[in-house]
């Protein structure tokens, strides 16, 4: 996998993919996209990096253990689902905070957004964890 094209491509592709993923996440409620696709695309960015520059580099870029990411993402989703019960409403009732931003219109942020954010991190973590584990196992096998 030590191709120069891959490396050069990755250098440019990676930030693009990450920005695209955030765009998908944020816009998902109103246009095609959402936490899943966002998370997957972000995951793809790290996968590319791992393929191009090696596992250690990708791990360093990610900073946290993918498993922690998975746990936190799931936790965030679950907590945003639980949030409404604190207000005495049924489980998972959307709670919205709406602002009117002049010149842009209505900005609504609600628990479903945080739920989607959780999905994003969960999917990102899952993708990284599986691919990293596989690459790691492959490397270990290569050494022995």
């Amino acid at each position: 996998m030590n191709s120069v094209i891959l490396r050069t491509g990755t250098v440019y592709l990676r930030p693009l993919l990450l920005i695209f993923s955030v765009f998908l996440l944020l816009g998902g409620h109103n246009q095609p996209g959402g936490g899943f696709t966002g998370g997957l695309v972000a995951g793809l960015a790290f996968v590319l990096e791992a393929l191009a520059f090696g596992l250690d580099q990708a791990r360093r870029t990610l900073r946290v253990h993918p498993l922690t990411l998975v746990g936190c993402g799931l936790l965030l989703s679950a907590m945003s689902a639980f949030f409404s019960t604190l207000l005495g409403k049924p489980f998972m009732t959307g709670t919205w905070w709406v602002w009117h931003v002049p010149g842009w219109g209505e900005l609504a942020v609600g628990t479903p957004f945080f739920f989607d954010l959780g999905v994003y991190f969960d999917v990102l973590g899952v993708t990284c964890l599986i691919i990293f584990s596989l690459l790691n196992a492959g490397e270990a096998e290569g050494k022995t």
Partner: peptide, 10 residues
């Protein structure tokens, strides 16, 4: 939720 907590505590 608790499973998520326990994953985080891996």
């Amino acid at each position: 939720l608790w499973a998520a907590v326990s994953i985080t505590l891996h």
